[in-house]
Design a protein around this nucleic acid. Structure first.
Lengths: 232, 232
DNA sequence: TCCATACTTCGACCGTAGCCGAAGCATCTC
DNA sequence: GAGATGCTTCGGCTACGGTCGAAGTATGGA
């Protein structure tokens, strides 16, 4: 009977469509204001305010006051992982949104998952890194190899710096659209950040999707080649 | 806005206390009848029937008709993982049940998590296996070593048999009470099953907790020793 | 100081979903 | 067939939670 932690509480928190939309939007990694989140949820500001208060009380959101704005973001990476894993689960049961919509393909191709790259490109990147021996994949676990350390140093990512942080370097995150793993953790974050810095890609305004420039796409594909199956 | 899979639906499904209790009970791995689940949820049979229909429609439960009983169990391991991960998350946010209750300690010590051992004993077992080199831990991932293969063969677990199945051999599962990983996957299942077969432990009637016999406990501790930190 | 913007609180409305009693099927036992 | 047991369906009640309009509070700018 009454055993263990109360999953009903957080289930109910996520179970409201407006709140779920807000959380999904915040999985894009950017902090959003109450007004923006109201729009995302398709509700008025007053209603959104009530929802946000509940999410905050439940420990899912972290507000940051800035002038007359209140920016909300996911409380931590654990929330993002939970949301993403629920998306994967929902997809596996066929609980899809009514209209796929025109933005869907872009989202499946490349999107932000909290702070790292997801979608087809995210999965391909990890595959390529594993194939070239930069990352070791054991079961669900990922680990940086010595060779990988070199590789990333060359791209301009200071692995030693990342190692200093308490956050895990490599983490596998199940991709809901591809149903396979992509790279999360501080290394995943650093990689995505570097793509932005180099101008290879940019985030879109109101969506999680990531748009690669033609040049960026070329560079990305060159850097993370995939074995093309030999044409039969 | 309308992006990706519908997490609100499954959130709402889990978000009802009665349904959450049912799901938690089913995480014990045993299939239960509608009547039993009604008791677990603290509701009448009619109400439970409605809840179960929803859970089934949502793809969380799998009913099996047997005579005049209908046995319900979690649809698959993915459901169990989702529930368990939500428990871990809920625990991390302090969303605990009102009364800890007298059964709580037994539950923290050893319990069933779908089909494998969890709780303090589950975590200790994995720690010990990693320490003796039977299992490799890389990041979150677990892999059986050659040495481990021998070890398990000696205990009477046919690893080759398990490998034949499509299900992953080793999987790490985050323990909500210990906040650390324990061993899931077909190997985790095989180990727990062997404890039951050897009479070292038994499941309890209405709970997830696993009770070790004095002799079983002795054997278990001998088989999976933990490094006692040297007294200072 | 005055107004605009960002957000919260209050109050009232309404719908949905949970709940149970009673009746209806289905299945097993005798 | 009669009766018990397990479960589902129906109907009606109720309450909780989501919703918005309107008013209230904070911050920024002119």
């Amino acid at each position: 009977m009454k055993e263990g932690p109360d999953i009903a509480q957080i289930g109910a928190l996520i179970g409201d469509p407006a709140r779920a939309n807000m959380l999904a939007a915040l999985t894009g990694g950017k902090a959003l204001t109450a007004t923006e989140l109201a729009a995302v949820g398709g509700i008025t500001l007053q209603t959104a305010s009530a929802h946000l208060a509940k999410l905050e009380a439940g420990g899912l959101l972290l507000p940051r006051k800035q002038g007359r704005h209140r920016y909300f973001s996911l409380a931590d990476e654990a929330v993002a992982r939970l949301i993403e894993s629920m998306m994967g689960f929902a997809a596996s049961r066929g609980h899809l949104r009514h209209q796929p919509g025109p933005k869907e393909p872009a989202l499946r191709k490349a999107r932000i998952c909290y702070d790292h790259l997801a979608g087809d490109y995210g999965v391909r990147m990890l595959d390529s890194l594993v194939a070239k021996g930069a990352i070791d994949a054991v079961g669900d676990g990922l680990a940086l190899t010595a060779k990988g350390e070199e590789t990333f140093q060359c791209i301009g990512i200071d692995v030693a710096d990342l190692k200093a942080s308490r956050r895990p370097l490599c983490r596998s995150c199940l991709d809901w659209s591809e149903r396979r793993a992509h790279l999360a953790g501080s290394l995943g974050k650093a990689l995505l950040t570097s793509f932005f810095d180099k101008g290879w890609a940019r985030r879109t305004a109101g969506s999680r999707s990531v748009i690669f420039s033609p040049e960026g796409e070329r560079q990305f594909v060159a850097l993370f080649p995939v074995e093309t199956p030999v044409a039969a």
